Simulated scan of single mutants.
Amino acid sequence: MSLSDGDSSNIPETASTLRVEKVTGSHLFKIMGYSLQTDIAKKKFLESATFSVGGYDWSIHYYPNGVKSTEEDYTSIFVLLKSEAKYVKAQPSFIILNENRNPLSARLTTEVYTFTSDNKDSYGFPKFVKRSALQSLSGDLKNDCIVIRCTVTVFKTFPVEVEPAFPLPVPPPDMQQLSHLLEAGYGADVTFKVNGQRFNAHKHILAAKSQVFLAQFFGPLKENKDKIIKIEDMEAPVFNSLLHFIYSETVPEFEEVSGSKKKHNNELAQHLLVAADRYDLDRLKIICQNILYGSIDRGNVVALLSLAEMHNCINLKTACLKFIASPGILGEVTATEQFQCLVRNHPLILKELLDKWVL
């Protein structure tokens, strides 16, 4: 069943689209004489210079002794919206490094937080890292210095007249082809065990492509003793494709799109989209959305809508809602138990469908 099924030639219709884009920027807040800052009174903070991301001004607030008395054993980190703006959707993350830019602690979040400027709104972690854990690393602090890197991704909305067309533009590869290293295993220093299968890889290559791997291998909880890492909740073929993409920026299975292979690719794309979201691989996530867009039909549209909702795939979600609203499809799909279960878990989906797509 194609997206164009149904006779709508005699039905007048209009359409508008709200385009969502994200802008990412980072700021480095260098604190010299860090050991002296631990004498600062509780609830007092160190503030960075103001920096701009996505057209808004921000600053970092760092509490060496915690923001509250109940958190005095921890350091606290927040990012503050300083611009006079309301309803700014952003996704902040923090990493503490030493002066050589080696990670000491990291908190990466998948939550999109809505900032307002009513009370100089902020977002962060009251219990970022234990003070004792950070102090134990003082031998690594060259010149008694730490660097806080705050990365802010701002989600901006733009009204446009023409709907964005699929496929989405795929960014070009951002690294050289390294697939031969993966295949030959030269210099591999980490092994993953996935459902009984082992995969050799290189920590620095994985960390260069994924903030999740960066925190896992070079953060305070880095794997030093055990070189075998067990991956849960993922099939071995999916992890193999994930590794191949990290090294080569390609997924060979997606190059064949006919016959039974196409069905296999659609299933792989669903699993890879979840993995890409888990390891913060945005380019792979876009590629998977493009594959799935071409497979939308009556039988899988609810499953794809649920997948898009859980993993923040705005364009795929919009395509699924538009398909469900097509003449002759709306009643059939919304009557299914699968759709009713989705609405129970995500009630705003039904409101969005009715408000934006069902005339």
Rank of each mutant, 00 (worst) to 15 (best):
A165F: 03
H27E: 00
G299Q: 10
S93V: 04
R19A: 11
A269V: 00
P173G: 09
P173M: 05
Y87M: 12
K22H: 15
V212L: 07
L243F: 04
I314Q: 06
S48P: 00
C145P: 10
K285T: 02
S4L: 03
F339K: 00
P171Q: 14
E47S: 03
R131T: 01
Y74P: 06
T116H: 00
L3E: 10
N266S: 09
F245G: 04
E163M: 03
I228G: 06
S48W: 08
F51I: 04
V212F: 08
S83I: 02
T14L: 15
E332T: 10
C320F: 13
R19I: 11
F78L: 04
Y62A: 02
L97V: 03
K322N: 15
D297C: 12
Q197T: 08
D5H: 12
Q338P: 04
Y63R: 10
L141W: 11
C320I: 07
G25H: 01
H180T: 13
Y123S: 02
S105Y: 11
V20M: 13
N345S: 14
D297S: 15
K225L: 13
E332R: 03
V190A: 03
P237M: 02
D140R: 13
F217W: 12
P164Q: 06
A236N: 08
I205Y: 07
S258Y: 01
E235C: 05
A184I: 08
L281V: 06
E235T: 03
G196D: 07
G66I: 02
S93Q: 07
Y34H: 09
S4A: 09
N315P: 13
P220E: 13
G294Y: 10
G54C: 05
V23Y: 13
I246H: 00
T334Q: 00
N119A: 09
A276K: 01
L348S: 12
H27F: 02
K225D: 15
K42M: 14
D280V: 06
P171R: 14
A184C: 11
V333F: 04
I231K: 10
T50F: 10
F158D: 09
I231S: 04
K322H: 12
I228Y: 06
S69C: 05
E253F: 01
D73V: 01
L350K: 12
P167C: 06
G54N: 11
L348W: 05
S8L: 00
M175P: 05
I314R: 07
F166W: 13
L46K: 07
P92N: 12
L206N: 12
N195A: 07
E352W: 03
F115T: 01
T318S: 14
H61N: 15
L214A: 01
E161K: 10
T114W: 00
K222D: 01
Q211F: 03
S241G: 05
N98L: 10
T17V: 07
F218N: 03
R278D: 00
K193Y: 06
K317H: 07
F254Q: 01
L181C: 09
G66Y: 14
E309N: 13
D277S: 03
G328H: 04
L81W: 06
K89Y: 04
L214T: 03
T50A: 12
I11L: 14
I95S: 12
L206P: 11
K89S: 02
E161L: 14
S59F: 02
S52A: 09
Q270T: 01
G299D: 11
K42R: 14
E309R: 05
K263W: 10
S179Y: 09
S210E: 07
V152L: 12
D282Q: 09
Y56A: 03
R283E: 09
R278K: 03
P167I: 08
E99H: 14
K222L: 01
